[in-house]
Computed example of a mutant assay.
Amino acid sequence: MAFQKDGYPPKRTFHTTKPVDKAREKELVFGIQSVAEAIRAGQEIDKIMIYREQNFNEIQQLAAEREIPVQRVPMEKLNQITRKNHQGVIAFMSAIRYVSLHNILATIFEKGEVPLLLLLDRITDVRNFGAIARTAECMGVHAIVVPMRGAAQINSDALKTSSGALNYLPVCRENNLIDAVQYLQDSGVQIVVCTEKASQIVSNIDFASPTAIVMGSEEDGVSPDLIRRANMTIKIPMIGKVSSLNVSVAAGMVIYEAARQRS
């Protein structure tokens, strides 16, 4: 530790606001007219933040029509993201173009392939998401399915962590994962939920049939509603003293077992 001449450590300087991330600003569209035009143009937008003390009727209506999540936040939050003239509105742009789950599933069946899908329930860490996408693409997963709300923003960090896998692996963004699960089951796809509460271990499951693997939140795992709707639940057997795995590591182990069986 460096010391001043009088022998005491130098005083620390504390900042009341976070510095603006210049790289992140490139992934934003801000200003009332700019955000409205981005929505009208059909650009992929992960979410929109608006100043909570003001009404933005046109933007809110356009966002509702496109099912884009809107968050009402204090002005300080907007100023932390960018100090440019945002006019109380910031849109977070996606680095990829989402595809329809219905179209993806139809294409897989038309090719004569057996679907292997990955549903991510409320995984919010961008690096976890990118790492999972990288493994999924390498192991032959056909697509990742994420919820409209409560999921990691797919930005340049996610692309970088995925080592470019997100340029090849389709991502479907669904308004409701429960509805997505029901659609997949109606289409003959089994839903396999990975949870530490399961009694079956991963190697005992047949992954050779059409399958959608569900991995859950870093905080509390897969939601109870999704667990109840699963065709089966599985767990990864562990013999060490630590009883949990990082979700990206766990996903990699389950996906590998599915790929191993299919090979």
Rank of each mutant, 00 (worst) to 15 (best):
N204C: 05
C172W: 01
V214E: 11
R228T: 10
T211R: 11
S203T: 14
S199T: 12
M148L: 14
N167C: 08
N155Y: 01
V145H: 09
G240S: 10
I213S: 07
V193M: 12
G150I: 07
F207D: 00
Y256F: 06
D157G: 11
Q182P: 02
I201D: 14
S209H: 11
R134K: 14
R127K: 11
L159A: 03
Q153I: 13
L245W: 06
V254L: 10
S217G: 01
S203L: 02
P224E: 05
P170E: 06
A230I: 09
A158E: 08
G150Y: 09
N204Q: 13
S199G: 06
I201R: 05
S248M: 04
V242A: 11
L159M: 13
V202R: 08
R149H: 08
G216K: 08
C194F: 11
I239H: 12
A131F: 07
V126G: 07
V222E: 05
M253F: 01
A151P: 03
G252E: 08
A158R: 10
G221Q: 03
F207V: 01
G130P: 00
S187V: 01
I205R: 04
T195H: 13
P224S: 03
A208C: 13
Q185F: 02
D206V: 00
N167R: 15
S223P: 10
V181W: 10
A151D: 11
A250N: 14
I144P: 03
D186V: 15
A151S: 14
D157Q: 05
R229P: 10
A143L: 01
I205W: 02
E257G: 00
P237V: 08
A151R: 12
G130I: 00
R173C: 08
P210L: 02
M232A: 15
M215E: 12
G150K: 09
L159C: 06
S187T: 07
T195E: 15
V189G: 04
I255A: 01
V192T: 15
Q182H: 13
T135P: 09
N231P: 11
K241C: 05
Q200S: 15
